[in-house]
Design a protein around this nucleic acid. Structure first.
Length: 579
DNA sequence: GCCGTTTTCGGCCCGACTGTTTTCAGTCG
């Protein structure tokens, strides 16, 4: 993707300009980098369609940066960057990742010691060359070494699903302290971003010292690396940082707003404050010296004439404008979910019996559950053949008889495989006996975009295929999405009444948020499923709902918010063209 | 270098913390 490549170059230009003490331009380059990364379309496509003028339409990109993007697209280079880079020919991205190192200190390290990369840096620090530099000292040297250690161990951003249970536990421990009056986990965690950099926790407390002591000695803390009166920072053994910030009751809402971000959202909101002659910071909303809001997020947004945007959409992707017009959509909520349609039982080698899963689903307040065991292609998962599906049907019928009086229903589905040519691994005749069918790509990921698109489209055209599972196939930070034309898939989904899945499994969260938003805009229906292989996975629904909200999905966009009879209609609608 | 309900010039988010200083620069979020 050109966008991320150019964004990286713009960031480096920003860093070098900052070293030169050039004001404001660095921000412009960084804003542009952020804008490029937020784009859904490759700049090459935008340029192909509308030329330089179209590039200038991108917020944050003006005449000069549009020219630089054009230059990159035509020649693969940006001359200005090549020139600037001569002043600081080092691996900036790598070096500035070390905690406490920014462009200016990296420049000093390069000028004085010739440090170009992490390896040079570690060597110089171990030889105690850094402590002798002006502006550095023994403490900086020590921190650099620890920063390198941490960097080696940490994987950068961590999947939300990995930190989720840890953070829930930490929150619980802290909220149980009687000194803690209010607590909220903020930052990208609160926005339910699919990966998080670090965890920020906000507390109101009568005893900051006590709470910080508990925080710094939590299970999993390997090092306390910063502690002031208002903030404590720790490294966790899983390779991420946690910050605890203390605020007071009157500022809690302002801090919540401020630390939830995103940065882009906050900048946009602060501009609105400025336009009204007000000032917004983490302590409150101020008119001159007078604080006019701060205790809750609601009063802050209200005083700005805005609705409160749900945290999941605070990315400056249109929510600020709609909040001003009081036209924000009402997003789907966990309590709207009436069932889960992607659940594996012990029939295909999973852990739990269908009955156990049904009972657990009832505990969650669901009205229905869809059992979707693998079919025969995936031998590794003990996929079911036609005969085994019939046995499973008998079991489900039996349970349904039992659950009828409490108004709970089990649907029989299956997770079938979309083969290389777009056909399925089990006959239509067998599929016709099921209530619904989930189809997914589980093999031959490395096909051309054209082939993969055709493959999935053919599967969607099968009247028995109700849902496409984990549509992009990506595994967060492990495997890229396969190549396919999502626009084509959207069109076919719409034309064939095929549902696209939001798979809540922590390693997938597939569809990604931006694709969900496309579906919502195009009126393609979605389903939030957990892909449960153990009853405890049913809880992943929360992650999927967060993901759906990040994609601006409303209740009506998500079919498993429908009642039992409504969802049966959805199943039937897809099959209307079957023989 | 971008942008516009202070609109083609003159603004640009801002406070905490750290480690170095001896009043502050750099970094972070």
């Amino acid at each position: 993707m050109n966008n991320s490549e150019i964004a990286k170059i713009f960031r480096e230009i920003a860093d070098i300009l900052e070293v030169r003490e050039i004001p404001h331009k660095p921000q412009a380059y960084r804003r542009a980098a952020l804008a490029l990364e937020g784009l859904e379309e490759d700049v090459a496509d935008i340029y192909a369609k509308g030329g330089k003028r179209a590039l200038e339409e991108i917020p944050g990109i003006g005449k000069s940066l549009a020219e630089k993007i054009e230059e990159f697209l035509l020649s693969g280079k940006i001359k200005k960057y090549e020139e600037l880079k001569k002043e600081l020919p080092v691996n900036l991205e790598e070096l500035t990742q070390v905690e406490g190192l920014g462009p200016k200190r990296v420049y000093v390290l390069y000028k004085k010691l010739g440090i170009k990369n992490l390896e040079d840096l570690e060597k110089a620090a171990k030889e105690h060359k850094i402590a002798k530099l002006e502006g550095f000292g023994p403490k900086s040297e020590e921190n650099i070494l620890q920063g390198i250690e941490f960097l080696k161990k940490s994987k950068g951003r961590i999947p939300l699903g990995v930190v989720y249970p840890i953070v829930q536990k930490v929150k619980k421990v802290l909220s149980n302290l009687k000194e803690v009056k209010k607590i909220e986990v903020v930052g990208s965690f609160r926005r339910r971003k699919e990966t998080v950099g670090d965890i920020d926790i906000l507390v109101v407390t009568s005893n900051p010292e006590k709470v910080m002591d508990v925080f710094c000695s939590l299970e999993g803390v390997v090092k306390v690396w910063g502690r002031g009166p208002k903030k404590a920072s720790v490294h966790m053994k899983e390779g991420f940082d946690m910050d605890l910030r203390v605020t007071d009751k009157e500022s809690f809402g302002a801090s919540l707003q401020y630390f939830t971000g995103s940065k882009a959202h906050n900048i946009a909101v602060r501009k609105i404050a400025i336009s009204k002659g007000l000032k917004l910071n983490e302590y409150g909303l101020f008119k001159g010296e007078k604080k006019i809001a701060g205790a809750t997020e609601e009063e802050i947004y209200q005083k700005l004439g805005m609705q409160v945007p749900p945290p999941e959409i605070r990315e400056d992707q249109g929510e600020v404008e709609l909040a001003l017009k009081h036209q924000l959509p009402k997003l789907v909520e966990l309590k709207d979910i009436k069932g889960d349609l992607h659940v594996h039982s012990n029939f295909d080698g999973g852990v739990d019996s269908i009955e156990t899963l049904a009972l657990k689903a009832q505990e969650l307040g669901y009205q229905y559950l869809g059992i979707s065991d693998h079919t025969k292609f995936l031998r590794i998962e003990r996929g079911l053949d036609e005969k085994q599906l019939e046995e499973e049907r008998k079991e489900i019928d039996k349970l349904n008889l039992k659950f009828k009086k409490i108004g709970f229903k089990i649907f029989q589905g299956a997770e079938v495989n979309i083969l290389r040519d777009g056909t399925l691994d089990i006959s239509d005749k067998a599929l016709a006996k099921l209530d619904y069918v989930i189809a997914g790509v589980h093999s031959n990921f490395n096909m051309s975009e054209k082939e993969m698109t055709a493959r999935i489209k053919r599967a969607m055209k099968n009247p028995y295929v109700t849902i496409i599972a984990h549509p992009t196939g990506r595994l967060i930070q492990k495997r890229e999405s396969y190549n396919f034309d999502f626009e084509e898939i959207l069109k076919t989904a719409k034309a064939t009444n095929t549902i696209l899945e939001i798979n809540s499994s922590p390693e997938r969260l597939d569809l990604p948020d931006k694709y969900i938003r496309f579906c919502v805009e195009q009126g393609v229906k979605l389903v939030i499923n957990t892909d449960t292989h153990h009853w405890q996975h049913l809880r992943y629904m929360e992650l999927g709902v967060g993901q759906a909200r990040r994609g601006w999905a409303k209740k009506e966009d998500i079919i498993n918010t429908y009642s039992t009879s409504e969802i049966e209609k959805v199943f039937k609608l897809k099959r209307k063209n079957a023989n």
